[in-house]
């Protein structure tokens, strides 16, 4: 891997000499993408240069299928976010087809900070840190949703038309994944998809949606400052209420707080203050149901990869054990 990386980066920095890779190490986490940390140094016009990097590479199989989360999409979103105050890591280099690094990969800035160990801020975590994280968490979301995606060159992602298209596209995406990429039949999920198809909410708001906006996907430092918002692989153009629904899911509501950070009311209030947009409770509820369905589908996709021997990531064996909890939330939401 080290030599592949060196050769790739040599090709990407034409004037560079003495390109050297150090400290290459695969990082824990990252069930959907392999994550490798490394430093690169080189000389250019007699100057010594270097960068601290993260390589995100498609695994042979994962929680998410690559065709839904192309590296090039993620790379272009990261590039676009550089001009926005959303703490996204800088995008450095892209091996779109995996010509150099075996599988599609992107290399981005390695930002200092730690993630929450779970997808929620722990209920026994430092309350002072929580109080600092919460407002910034909402502020970044507001900045993402207020991005002029057209001006940022993100219209290639495909904007849904006004009406129910945004919701319909997401339901179709995840129902397709469930039908094609899961080994089991789950009648509760089938019922949930039928409910979603019958209850598509309409909106004329189209925004850049992060797609996985929750604790566990940001880094923060010892003072409670969010240093980076990560995992943009599910970003798309859609209904901004989708990110709110995802963040409000019971599945990661630590101690009854949305993503372990703040009560739902506070999240709504801060969001409305920052965006000037009223939170549509009905749409948020719809996207909470979709969120449970999406998370269950992601887990079941991972289980299939494991059962078919397409991955050695043992976590994918265990994610299926999360599904009953998600289904219990669906039973309650749909009043089955």
């Amino acid at each position: 891997m080290e030599e592949r990386l060196r050769t790739f980066l040599q090709s990407q920095i034409p004037g560079a000499t003495e390109v050297a890779i150090s400290g290459l190490q695969r990082r824990p986490g990252g069930a959907s993408r392999e994550s490798w940390a490394f430093d690169v140094s080189w000389k250019e016009d007699g100057k010594a240069l270097g960068r601290q990097c993260i390589l995100r590479r498609d695994p042979p199989a994962s929680l998410l299928n690559s065709d839904k989360t192309e590296r090039s999409f993620e790379f272009r979103v990261l590039e676009a976010m550089e001009s926005r105050p959303v703490s996204a890591p800088k995008a450095y280099w892209l091996d779109e087809k995996g010509k150099w690094l075996e599988r599609p990969s992107l290399i981005m800035e390695r930002v200092e900070g730690q993630p929450t160990p779970l997808p929620t801020y722990p209920s026994n975590g430092d309350p002072v840190i929580r109080q600092r994280l919460a407002p910034r968490f909402v502020e970044i979301l507001a900045h993402i949703h207020q991005s002029d995606w057209n001006a940022l060159g993100l219209s290639f992602m495909g904007a849904p038309k006004p009406g129910t298209a945004a919701a319909q596209q997401q339901v179709a995406l995840w129902e397709g994944a469930y039908r094609n990429d899961c080994l089991d039949c789950v009648p509760i999920l089938d019922a949930a998809f039928r409910w979603l198809r019958r209850n598509l909410p309409a909106t004329d708001q189209v925004a850049l949606v992060h797609g996985d906006y929750r604790s566990g996907n940001y880094l923060y430092d010892g003072t409670g400052r969010i240093t980076a918002m990560l995992d943009w692989e599910l970003a798309h153009l859609g209904d901004p209420m989708e990110d709110l629904g995802w963040a409000c899911m019971k599945f990661w509501s630590g101690g009854g707080l949305a993503v372990g950070l703040m009560p739902r009311d506070e999240l709504y209030r801060r969001y409305e203050e920052l965006t000037g947009t009223s939170v549509d409770h009905r749409r948020v509820s719809f996207y909470e149901v979709l969120g449970n369905v999406k998370m269950a589908t992601i887990a079941l996709t991972g289980v299939k990869s494991f059962c078919e021997g397409k991955t050695t990531h043992t976590m994918l064996a265990m994610v299926g054990f999360m599904v009953p909890r998600l289904l219990a939330d669906l039973v309650s939401q749909l009043d089955l």
Binding site: Q25, R26, R27, P28, G29, T312, T314, M315, M318
Partner: peptide, 14 residues
């Protein structure tokens, strides 16, 4: 190795 430790932790759960 941190990644190996993580995998081993999952294997212990299995």
């Amino acid at each position: 190795d941190p990644f190996a430790v993580e995998q081993a932790t999952f294997m212990a759960l299995v």
